[in-house]
Nucleic acid binder design. Structure first.
Lengths: 347, 347
DNA sequence: CTGAAAGCGCTTACAG
DNA sequence: CTGAAAGCGCTTACAG
């Protein structure tokens, strides 16, 4: 299995009658090269179909020129993260960055494992949705000099560039909608309570209730993991209560899908017998029956902005940290009641 | 942004009082090292927390030791491929391979673009679902010495390791089921007809019809792209026919979701007014209303086997090519009629 | 069983 | 503006 290394810098240099240093210079175009020389080299590069070996470049450079980004995704089965990946990918490759991906399946050990591997791949940046318990580990990354941008949530132990959504407001709007449509007993399936994002959504939920004069009943706020199974089981638990909710607000995609499974398997009618509103919209929310009313956060946009931030961080390592908070959008369809249309969330 | 290169081989060698060659040997454990020496080196490695720099390793070696796999995914929004990715990832990292991913969004140019980038990343293997028109490009990869395994479909111009599913039989079983449940006018939304997988599914569809004495009506076999939008639009087209089908068989996930959108938006009852059966099962097929009857192909399993094949190919480049064809499973739920349970597809 | 040395394909001071 | 040379962190013949 002899994989050809392809045309090398040296071959280009020889053919163009210059030194490798010069060829390198025209490629990286940081230093000035005489127009005539440059043209000649460019021509040879084209002729030979030369493409720099990124591995060699990476080995040689120690700054942000390695052009490799490590992407740590909590759960690739969650359509929201798929959108984030798409956004990141599109804009990363456009900037000549490649992406190494690690899907850690909401598991702390695997997140560590991947970080270590990606380090030995000499990535020069990390994009990570930090898992509870990983605060110190991620902080270390920053201290070691990696560019890192957090998505979906930040770190509890330091400031950092983070791109997220206004979870509080998103949840608030959702619950207000439910109230407006007539519900007063609204269950909440919250997801993993260790994750800041979850807590923000809980706050939004509580605030909306309080504002509308509805008492908070801890019995109908249930949380375990942010996965499909939890959605299935916690919905059953809610429904089995002596005094069950008339509406359920689910804290993410996976939970929503799980909840729907339980609801349908019991033959309950949506929204007449039970209303449902989910955090996270999906491109196929309208393929559900009835179409799902959902809090939309644009993963694609988050991905785009993340690459932007990362790029700026690499270019100017000392720039102050920023936290970008995108607004959510409530997509009103028919799983909660009868109104239809969409309302922007307002802050 | 000075990213620390970490502890180097040299530092380990110095501290252990041996040459770098020896340390390298104990790491790669291909050649014999004296037990005592090995122990000493191991200890220092542990002490210093040494981890080999994979980039340097990659630059140096030219065979299958680069430990990097390029993964070319047609469409990461398709849950089937998400499962494939999960399978690949899990088993790749277990074998100490890292994955660079390129999601080319069913676009030929982007597939080429990614292949080129991944080459310059010195991957030693490619996993690819070849897009129509890419036959020669992929063949070249093989000729250049890369290990490549195809998923979902092979190449038309050469044999190769391929891991796929019995599409003919899967479609056949699906259509037979529809017939058994009472349908005789079954529409087919086929997806991209340039893709061999599509053609196999069309054959299965036609064979089942013919076997059951139903004439093939080209008017209700419609195909364009294998995406959501096509599903939405072609379903409308089918439904608008003077003599519309009573059942629709969709050729993949995305098409199914698109079809559902149209069906629900028209307020049609499933399965009474229109039955639907989809190729590709999803873990949330039971969250649909009614639960979807679907042809299940295990993406996760495909991923697992792919890594296996790749590994063997790297170890023994000259071994004969194999084509692994997995069976599908018809998951009978309630979107087609009243029977319930599941039947294995049989060949 | 082990070491000295070359080299993978680049980039980057250092001279000129 | 350009070249000669060192070196990134490894692995691998070649000797011994």
């Amino acid at each position: 299995m002899a994989i050809p290394k392809g045309v090398s810098l040296k071959e280009v240099a020889d053919k163009a009658g210059v030194s490798t240093a010069t060829v390198s210079r025209v490629i990286n175009s940081k230093t000035v090269v005489k127009g005539e020389t440059e043209l000649r080299v460019q021509k040879v590069i084209k002729q030979l179909g030369y493409r720099p070996n990124r591995v060699a470049q990476r080995l040689r450079t120690t700054n942000g020129a390695s052009k490799l980004i490590g992407l740590l995704i909590p759960d690739i089965q969650n359509p929201f993260y798929v959108d984030v990946i798409r956004g990141i990918e599109q804009y990363a490759y456009a900037r000549n960055f490649a992406i190494v991906i690690g899907n850690f399946s909401q598991n702390e050990e695997r997140q560590k494992f991947y970080i270590d591997i990606l380090k030995s791949e000499s990535v020069d940046a990390f994009i990570v949705a930090p898992f509870p318990g990983m605060n110190d580990y991620v902080k270390e990354l920053v201290e070691e000099g990696y560019a890192v941008v957090c998505i979906d949530r930040g770190l509890s132990n330091m400031d950092l560039d983070v791109v997220k959504v206004d979870n509080y407001q998103g949840a608030f709007d959702a619950v207000e909608h439910l109230v407006k449509v007539g519900h007063r007993r609204i269950g909440f399936i919250s997801g993993n309570m260790q994750i800041p994002t979850t807590l923000e959504r809980v706050s939004g939920y509580e605030a909306a209730l309080t504002k509308n004069g509805i008492a908070i009943d801890r019995e109908i706020i249930v949380g375990r993991n942010s996965d499909h199974t939890s959605g299935v089981e916690l919905t059953a638990q809610l429904l089995d209560l002596p005094h069950p909710p008339t509406a359920i607000f689910t804290s993410n995609n996976l939970l929503t899908l799980g909840a729907l499974e339980t609801i349908h398997s019991r033959g309950l009618k949506i929204p007449e017998e039970i209303a449902i509103l989910g955090f996270d919209d999906m491109y196929w929310s309208t393929s559900l029956n009835p179409p799902l009313t959902a809090v939309r956060q644009s993963g694609f946009e988050i991905g785009r902005i993340t690459i932007d931030l990362l790029y700026q961080r690499i270019m100017e390592p000392a720039r102050p940290y920023v936290s970008i908070v995108l607004k959510t959008e409530l997509m009103v369809r028919t799983s909660c009641g009868h109104k239809s249309g969409k309302m922007k969330s307002t802050i």
